[in-house]
């Protein structure tokens, strides 16, 4: 339980809070990385294929091994590029996976929260590999796009700390170990 902070031992709570707030920044690509992503047009639908690498921090891994469900969220944004104005987000799609350790089965269960499909994996690495390999994810219909406009797709992966159990959330908000997030990975549609 070394990830927990005993607040009662901190007499200067406000200073600690302020310091934590100032120092707290997302742990960038060191843990969550998007290696490659692309879009394919298949029967009028843009499908996304992406290869990602996810590595949980020690704190989050410990929580996972203690049956705390973790949620990994992929966020896709389709942006229309404009010459004189900032880009316009015309579509935002999320793909969420819940990762949980099953004590009885001794399996890591990955649940696709969009489709509610479950997959069991005997090892953590297999589960993370499964999440990190996205194939044929339907992004949007081609008909929704203008032919003569340039579109950019962005992808970001992050650990959804809002979905954590309530007692963990305050710590997750202020601790670097819990702020796992990748850079935006962009490519042209």
């Amino acid at each position: 339980m070394h990830g927990c902070v005993n607040v009662a031992n901190w007499p200067l709570l406000p200073l600690w809070l302020l310091g934590m707030l100032l120092l707290t920044q997302p742990v960038w690509a060191a843990n969550f990385q998007i290696l490659h992503a692309e879009t394919q047009l298949h029967e009028g639908v843009y499908l996304v294929n992406a290869d990602m690498h996810f590595e949980l921090s020690a704190d989050s891994r410990e929580a996972l091994d203690n049956s705390v469900p973790l949620t990994v969220q992929l966020t896709f944004q389709v942006r229309r590029q404009r010459d004189w104005l900032w880009d316009q987000v015309i579509a935002s799609v999320q793909q969420r996976y819940q990762l949980q350790y099953h004590s009885l089965a001794q399996q890591y269960v990955v649940t696709n929260l969009n489709s509610h499909q479950r997959h069991s994996f005997p090892t953590y690495a297999a589960a993370m590999e499964y999440i990190g390999r996205l194939r044929g994810f339907p992004l949007l219909d081609q008909t929704l796009l203008d032919a003569d406009t340039r579109y950019q797709v962005r992808l970001r992966a992050e650990l959804d700390i809002h979905s954590l159990p309530a007692p963990l959330r305050p710590l997750a908000y202020v601790s670097r170990a819990w702020r796992l997030r990748s850079h935006w990975y962009s490519w042209m549609l």
């Binding site: 339980m1 902070v5 005993n6 607040v7 203690n66 049956s67 004590s103 159990p165 963990l168 305050p170």
Partner: peptide, 26 residues
């Protein structure tokens, strides 16, 4: 399985729970 996982999760969350409560209380 459900009871065991819940208990284990709760046990793991014991200190964060305390921290959270103490933080709010403080």
């Amino acid at each position: 399985q459900s009871a065991f996982d819940s208990y284990r999760e709760l046990k793991f969350l014991r200190n964060p729970l305390k921290t959270s409560f103490i933080l709010t209380l403080s």
